Simulated assay, not measured.
Amino acid sequence: MESVVSKHNFEELLDKHHLKKTGPRLKVLSMMASKNTATSQPDLESVMSDIDRVTLYRILNAFEKKGIIHKVFDLNGTANYAMCHSNCEEHHHHDEHLHFNCTICKNVYCLDDLNLPPLKLPDGFKMEGFTLYANGTCPKCAGAIAK
Rank of each mutant, 00 (worst) to 15 (best):
T39Y: 11
A82P: 00
E90W: 04
D50P: 07
N36R: 12
L111M: 04
S86P: 03
D74Y: 05
E96C: 09
Y57P: 07
L116K: 10
C84P: 02
D74I: 05
F100D: 07
A62W: 01
Y109G: 01
G67Y: 03
S49K: 15
L44H: 01
K65I: 04
P42Q: 07
L75R: 09
S30Y: 04
A38V: 04
K71A: 04
A79P: 02
L116Y: 13
F63Y: 03
N87C: 12
E64W: 05
N61C: 00
N61Q: 07
M32C: 12
Y81N: 00
K65E: 14
R58Y: 04
N36L: 11
A79E: 07
F63T: 01
A62P: 01
S46M: 14
I59A: 05
D112I: 06
C102V: 11
L116W: 12
R53L: 13
S40F: 13
V54G: 11
H92T: 11
Y57C: 14
R58W: 03
T78K: 10
F100R: 04
R53E: 14
E96F: 07
D50T: 15
N76P: 01
A62D: 12
S86K: 13
A33F: 02
C105G: 09
L98V: 14
D113K: 13
C84H: 02
V47F: 13
H92G: 08
H70D: 02
V47E: 15
T103V: 15
V54L: 15
N101C: 15
H94G: 03
D74K: 02
C88A: 01
D50Q: 15
C84N: 11
F73Y: 14
A82H: 07
L29V: 08
H99G: 03
F73K: 12
P42H: 09
I68N: 06
E96Y: 09
E64L: 07
D52M: 12
H94P: 05
C102E: 07
L114N: 06
D95H: 05
L56I: 10
L60S: 03
P117H: 07
V108Y: 04
M31H: 07
D50R: 13
I51Q: 08
K66M: 08
G67V: 06
E90Q: 14
H93Q: 08
S49F: 13
L29Y: 01
H85S: 03
V72I: 11
A79D: 04
Q41S: 10
L75F: 06
T39H: 09
M32K: 05
T78D: 11
D95Q: 08
F63D: 02
T39M: 10
M31D: 07
V54C: 10
S86H: 09
C110G: 09
F73C: 08
A62K: 10
D95E: 12
T39S: 11
E64S: 07
K35D: 06
M31F: 09
S86N: 11
N107G: 04
M32S: 05
A82N: 03
H91S: 13
A62Q: 08
R53D: 14
A82S: 09
T103L: 15
R53V: 12
V54I: 14
S49V: 15
C88Y: 00
A62F: 00
E89N: 08
A82E: 02
